[in-house]
Structures are given as structure tokens and as C-alpha cells.
Design a protein around this nucleic acid. Sequence first.
DNA 1: TCCATGGCTGTATGTTCATACAGTATCGCG
DNA 2: CGCGATACTGTATGAACATACAGCCATGGA
Lengths: 206, 206
Amino acid sequence: MDHDELTPRQRQILDFIVERTRASGAPPTRVEIAAAFGFRSANAAEEHLRALVRKGAIEMAPGRSRGIRVVSVATPAGGTGVLPLIGQVAAGSPILAVENIESEVAIDAALFQPRADYLLRVRGDSMSGIGVLDGDFLAVHRSATAESGQIVVARIDDEVTVKRLQRDGERVRLCAENPAYAPIEIDLSRGELAIEGLAVGVVRRW
Amino acid sequence: MDHDELTPRQRQILDFIVERTRASGAPPTRVEIAAAFGFRSANAAEEHLRALVRKGAIEMAPGRSRGIRVVSVATPAGGTGVLPLIGQVAAGSPILAVENIESEVAIDAALFQPRADYLLRVRGDSMSGIGVLDGDFLAVHRSATAESGQIVVARIDDEVTVKRLQRDGERVRLCAENPAYAPIEIDLSRGELAIEGLAVGVVRRW
DNA sequence: TCCATGGCTGTATGTTCATACAGTATCGCG
DNA sequence: CGCGATACTGTATGAACATACAGCCATGGA
């Protein structure tokens, strides 16, 4: 984890290993490392590798060719996440109901904070002011509550909408981020508002 | 690409190579493949590998240990893709150089079309007109060429920038999507423009 | 029927690789 | 000053690997 204590030379070696692994599909050998750095002896590479193992930057499988593994630099907490993509939400159905799931998208849910539970296809340009366009996928974290100022996925009269929440005591407003749309005023005491989740990110494919 | 013509056995071998590469960090050797399938001869693995090369499923580097590379790009079951996230590009360095890679993000590269090769952190609001904001991650497909009208990642005077390309014969313009920024005019014959890639999507985390 | 292809066993050879041991030189630290 | 750590050169050895060649058996065309 904390291989900040690496010497500059050791960091170069580590970088080379990462780069070479990515480029060629397998980690380099001692001789390849030596060649890349101009060492006349493969042992120089060997000793650098030992230092990297000692400092926790890599692991080595004994006796195994190209048995170098870079520790932890790569994936932060491997999330082999697949998020459901919600297209249109049928009236009266829960958002995550099977019939609403258009497909599954391979994205790590932990990319977003708090973690995303699903992607919602945005329709219309009511949020264009904050760069959320028609057709974008909104990453949504399920939550029944929200704080003033947050972008929420809400359900009003059985319709799912994305708006910015503004709370002022008992009075709540759902504001579009587009001057062409008027805010929606809601009286909480009548309980017409159901918050479905918080917007935590956007994914757009061109 | 279309190795549907693989026999069931060959597909098993290919799957094993993919799995093993992911699990151990390097492709398996002939002996390891033979051991995994119970072959009593490493040559059985060798011949399977040759068949896979013939059918375009893998490539092999001659004389190189663990020199197997799986050609297929869209990882099979949904794709556990990981894209490098490029923060700031050091002047004079290739975009994908290790020192530019800030982290890795678990997103299926095949989510985008054409496939994304890396994510580039956007700085500034010059593309805010099309919903690309400061801090967004631009999904980029590597390409040295682009057509008029496309959003490109280009390098001018050793600086990486995102703009819309407009080509008019020998004259090329790089336009911001923000009226506050003036278009950049470039004479192609002087060769000052290097196109690094095409924008294929956006990822934003709030 | 012959022949190509897939799928193996068995043996062998030369290269690639990991790794140990013996040195040399520099540098910062107590 | 001496010691340990870094950063190498040089040599060596055995295990790991890629890969060629010689066969065997089955299946599915031509």
C-alpha cells in the first residue's frame, strides 16, 4: 500500500513493470528489465525486485517465469459490478422491477459515492444546466431521504423525474436546471412526494 | 474476431487462458495448460495454441515464455474491463505513459462505441455546451485520424486539449463548445496538429 | 477408400529464466 | 570511522519453457 518509501530508481522499475505488463500481456523477466535500463547484469534487476518485494510493492512467485505481480496499485477494491439500466419506468411499478430493466451495464458501483444502485436513462433536457442531457444515464443511489440542494430521483403522481431538491421547512420545491421549466412546489404534509434515490453520477455514450 | 468457429475444446482452452491470466497476472505455460486439462504431454497444449493462433483467437510471441496474448477485446461474460484514468498529461509524454495514469476505473471498455481505451480528466469548461464539465472523465478511443464534426482529443504545442474538429480542406479548426472560447485555426500543412483520440463518452462522479 | 483435422501420448533439444554467489563503488548515519 | 543500504558488474547453474518430431486414434468429408 504505502510504497512511498521507494527510491526513485525503484519507482522507475515498478513503473516499467506496470507499463510492460500492460503492453505485452505479461510481466517482464529479469533480463528484459536489465535490457530496458541498460544493466549489464540481470542480477541488478533481481535485486531491485527483491527490494520491491521487501517494501510490499510487488509479489513474486518463486521459480515461476514472469512471476511478478504488482500489488494493489491497480484496482481499488475490485468491484466486478454490473448495474441494471432502467429505461422507462412503468406507472405503478417499483423502479427496480424486472420489467423496467433494459439491460445490464458493466460499471463498478463503487466508482460513485455513495455507491450507485442502478442507472436511469434520462429523458428530456430539464437538467441540461448541470450537464445532464437527454439520453444520459444517471447513476442513482437508492435512498428515501435527501437533503436540500441534492439532485434526486423522485416520483410524483406515479411519474419518475430527476430534479434538484430544495427544502424549506414543510415546503419543498423540485427545481429543473433549465430556465424553461418551472419549479414544482409540493406540500410535504400531503405526502405526494416519494424520493427514490440520489443522483451520484452520469454516464454518457456517444 | 469471429472465433465462433472454435471447437468446444479450443474454447475451453481459450477460457482457461483468459481466466488464468486474470488470476495469476500472466498467461499460462504449455505445461500449466496441460496440467489443468490432464494432458500427459505439453505438446497437446502446444497444438491447441497453434489452432487458436490459426483461428485468430490468440497471438504468440515466438521463443518468449508465457508469450500468449488473447486477441479478443470485449471480455466475454459482460466484461470486467478496467480503464486507465489519465489525470494530467506531462508535456512531451505519451498520454498512456505510466506517470500520467492516476488510477484505474472499473468500466467495460465496450460500453462505448468505438471502444474506449482510457478516461481523460477534463479540465476547464470549454466544452460545457455539450454537457462536458470541469472534472468530468472523457472516455477516449485512440485514433490518429478524425472526421469533421467529431469531438477529438488533440495535442497542440505539447498540450492536450478536447475540442470539436472542423475540417475544411487544408484548413482545420478546433472549436470549443462554449462561446467564451475562440476557435483555434490550424494549417495542416505545417503539421502542428496531432490527434490523439476520439471522445466516445463521458463519466461524471458527484 | 484416402486424406485432412482434431486431439492426444511420448521424447527430445536448446533457449529462456530465476536465482545464487562473489565482487566493486557510493552515500548517509550513528 | 565502520556499517548497512543502494546500485550495480560478472559468472554460473539448474529448472522452467517453447517447440520440433514421431506416432496413435477417431471423425467426417471427397
